[in-house]
Design a binder for these strands. Structure first.
Lengths: 252, 252
DNA sequence: CCATCTTTGTGCACGCGTTCACAAAGACAT
DNA sequence: ATGTCTTTGTGAACGCGTGCACAAAGATGG
């Protein structure tokens, strides 16, 4: 191994499978909607339909949390909302910093989903001195120079990286050095972090490419006959974009 | 993974596992960077490090595409870029519509990652009449009334939903009815789509909640060894957090 | 109290994905 | 040509996640 690993070793997060953890927010959202409609109880079948999953899977997921249901009746909505919230750590307040206040960073700062559910945008940070002091989402943007102090003063442990790809690793390193242990990365780069730091990636480009793959397949295997094994004189010159994105359009 | 209530059995896409497809864009990005540096060949070990994955996994992934490597040498960078691009369907142009030009939609429209790699923003659509005609990312926003015509005229098959949650399903239905078969959904809702339509979800709130879960776990184990195997204690029943037995917090 | 009905919780089997480990394949030097 | 060295490609084992199917648990009614 040359570079540092970016994955946590153990999946045994107190016995709750990672796949289950990833679905808990889904359940929580559906339960919150039910709670707002004052629905007292819900069956695994109903809740599973609302969350878009299999009912057996949902029951198994809940079984990892404990036996919170009543046979013959279902689950108490309020109680389950509380239990899942507690399990996810949403009963406490999580200050979050957003680094890189460009188009995306600003949109994230304004995103309502951040403010709700226990997450609070503690600071907006950008490297551009011209941005410093400018209000975004009712909050002044602060300069990268103060990154360490901001994180320390606010006890921030979750950071969001919305910088260009080139700056992401550097920002990441500083965040980690400052005490951040969870990172949500929007930059199209693989981040290297030490053990104990969690990184989750959101990559719009990758999502689109996956869709394109399936779309191409759906579009018909009519033209899929030719394969590239006899690709004639692979073009050596590619149009290289400054930010590293090449359309890679090749002669067929 | 692809959401939606329609659990199609993956339809064994030409024998290429879904997990492999999801990693191909990652490889492609790393390869593109190598290509820009005019690196002629790369070993599976090097490329795996650059992409942040295991080298054996990478080799197995590539084996699904064919035998494109040379033993004792490695992979030809240019050739591999072409093969992966072709496999992902990036050798053709994919027109994309973005529906919901709020903060997030506008950021997406401006996002460079969209424009590159064969994706082209064909239209921006919003339900607000006040938005109609306003330029965003150098392109006039069009009204939802023309949604069907826009999709049809441009031959769009990929749609991005960046509307509020309440409007997402309705927009989704119209997109599907208009011929869209792939959807990238940013709205925090479970979308129902008919068979044959792919939906991928990007949910910032869910990502944060997953991070919070791990963060809470890390914070709660400062006293004991962080090895989870030593914590099979059945203290699950009615353990109350430091905040006591409070009813569920109800985020808006 | 007993019977019946509903729904949970879970044992089990299966399939997918990951990883190991190694033989096969080719490059390269002699 | 022959041997050595490097790296691929893959068979096989393993672990995780999923879904079925059913017994256990509790509600409900007589």
């Amino acid at each position: 191994m040359a570079t540092g690993r970016t994955h946590r070793p153990a999946t045994r997060s107190r016995g709750i499978p990672e796949a289950t953890v990833a679905r808990l927010p889904l359940y929580l959202r559906a339960l919150t909607a039910l709670s707002e409609r004052s629905v007292p109880t819900v069956s695994s079948e109903e809740l599973a339909a609302a969350a878009g999953v299999n009912s057996a899977k949902l029951r198994k997921d809940f079984s990892y949390l404990g036996s919170y249901g009543t046979r013959g009746v279902g689950y108490d909505v309020e109680y389950l909302v509380y239990q899942i919230s507690r399990e996810l750590g949403l009963t406490q307040d999580w200050p979050v910093v957003i680094v890189g206040i460009g188009n995306l960073g600003a949109a994230l700062a304004n995103y309502g989903g951040f403010a709700s559910r226990g997450f609070r945008v503690a600071a907006l940070i950008d490297a551009d001195p011209a941005m410093a002091g400018k209000p975004v989402a009712g909050m002044p943007v602060q300069h990268t120079d103060d990154l360490e102090r901001i994180i320390s003063d606010n006890g921030v442990s979750i950071g969001v990286i919305a910088t260009p790809a080139g700056a992401a690793q550097q920002v990441c390193d500083r965040l980690v050095a400052a005490g951040i242990t969870s990172i949500l990365n929007f930059a199209p780069t693989v981040l290297s972090v030490p053990d104990g730091v969690d990184v989750r990636k959101v990559d719009l480009s990758i999502e689109l490419q996956i869709l394109a793959f399936h779309e191409q397949r759906k579009a018909g295997e009519d033209a899929a006959a030719d394969d590239g094994t006899a690709a004639p004189a692979v073009a050596k010159d590619h149009r290289k974009g400054p930010d590293g994105d090449v359309p890679a359009v090749m002669p067929a």
